[in-house]
Each structure stands twice: as structure tokens, then as C-alpha cells.
């Protein structure tokens, strides 16, 4: 009489623990994704200052500076379409790399402390985006492993926890939503 009751209590507790774990991993993944977003927007905010500071020294690179300003405005304006955002962000990165390379050839840029600090900020923002993506990938890996492992995959199937998608290469991903996880278990 006592054993089935105890057993069912244990099973209920295990199911609750597994469900909570999945929910926790999924929220971590969402938080990591929004952190990537935050860092991308931070880079957008840095660029106008950088452009004004190097304009004095790099008058001959006017086309490059104009391209950067335009791409940045477009990327900042886009909200929804992940694919287009991905393309714009990659372009922006490539342009910034070109700007860094050409500015290092100009001796005055190296002497200006303000410009150096902005360069440091820019390289730091690149690293932040890279680390935020790395963290997102790690969270996605944990979450996907939890969904696929044996006891928790039953609960994941019942409550429709869908796997999240990793970052591959530099682009965000070809599908329309990078991060499809919905819960239909109410």
C-alpha cells in the first residue's frame, strides 16, 4: 500500500525537476540571445564617435566612411528580419576591418589617444560579440543535449520544447527564426 504511493511521489518530483531544468536552460538560451543583440546594438552606438574621430585624419577614405555610416544606419533600423540583419552585420564587420587596417597605416591615428581608445573600444566590442555568441552556443548545446537525453526527452516531447539553433560561421543562420522554442504545455 505504501510503496506505490511513495513511488508515484518520487516520479512526480522527478518530472517536476526535469521540467524545471528544461525551462531554466531555455531561459538561459533566450537571455544569451538577447545579450548578443545588446552587444550588436552597442557596436552600432560606438560607430558614429569612431567616424568623427578618424574623419580628420582620413579625408581620403571618405567613401569608406560614408559606407560605414550607411550600413550602420540600415542595420540599426532593421528590427525583425534576421537574415537581412545578418547580412548587414557581416558587411559592417568587413568594412570596420578595412577601416582598422587603413587607419593603422596613418601615423597620426596612432598618436591620438582619443582615437586609440576608440579603437580599443571597437576591438573590445568585436570580442564581446564573439564571446556573447560563444556563450549562446554553449547554452544551446546544453539545452539541446537536455532535450535529447533519455529521461528528459520524454518531458520535452510532451511539452513541445524544440531545439534551438546554433550559430554557424559568421552569419546568423539561414532560417527565418534562429531561435524557435515554444511551449504548448498549459
Amino acid at each position: 500500500m505504501k510503496a506505490p504511493v511513495a513511488l508515484s511521489i518520487v516520479v512526480v518530483l522527478l518530472v517536476a525537476w526535469a521540467y524545471n531544468r528544461l525551462v531554466r536552460l531555455r531561459s538561459r538560451t533566450s537571455a544569451a540571445w538577447s545579450q548578443v543583440d545588446v552587444q550588436l546594438r552597442r557596436r552600432h552606438d560606438l560607430i558614429p564617435n569612431l567616424l568623427t574621430s578618424v574623419q580628420a585624419y582620413m579625408a581620403h577614405e571618405r567613401t569608406l566612411l560614408k559606407q560605414i555610416a550607411e550600413t550602420r544606419a540600415q542595420a540599426a533600423a532593421l528590427q525583425g528580419d534576421i537574415g537581412a540583419r545578418a547580412r548587414l552585420e557581416s558587411n559592417l564587420e568587413a568594412l570596420l576591418v578595412m577601416l582598422t587596417a587603413t587607419s593603422q597605416a596613418v601615423p597620426q591615428v596612432g598618436a591620438d589617444v582619443h582615437a586609440r581608445m576608440l579603437q580599443e573600444e571597437l576591438s573590445s566590442s568585436e570580442r564581446r560579440i564573439a564571446f556573447a555568441r560563444q556563450h549562446y552556443n554553449d547554452c544551446v548545446m546544453d539545452y539541446n543535449s537536455a532535450i535529447a537525453s533519455f529521461p528528459t526527452n520524454i518531458i520535452a516531447g510532451l511539452c513541445a520544447f524544440r531545439p534551438a539553433i546554433l550559430f554557424r560561421n559568421e552569419e546568423f543562420g539561414a532560417e527565418d527564426t534562429i531561435h524557435r522554442t515554444t511551449v504548448a504545455c498549459n
Binding site: R28, A32, E120
Partner: peptide, 19 residues
């Protein structure tokens, strides 16, 4: 101080990697 500012950036980057 540029070095200390750089260190602050490094700490922020690592905390992003750690979440």
C-alpha cells in the same frame, strides 16, 4: 588610465562569455 580601462573591457568580455 588606458591599461586599466582595457582591463575593465576584458572583465566585461569574460563575464559575457560566462553569462
Amino acid at each position: 588610465d588606458t591599461q586599466e580601462h582595457r582591463l575593465a573591457n576584458i572583465v566585461e568580455e569574460i563575464s559575457l562569455a560566462a553569462g
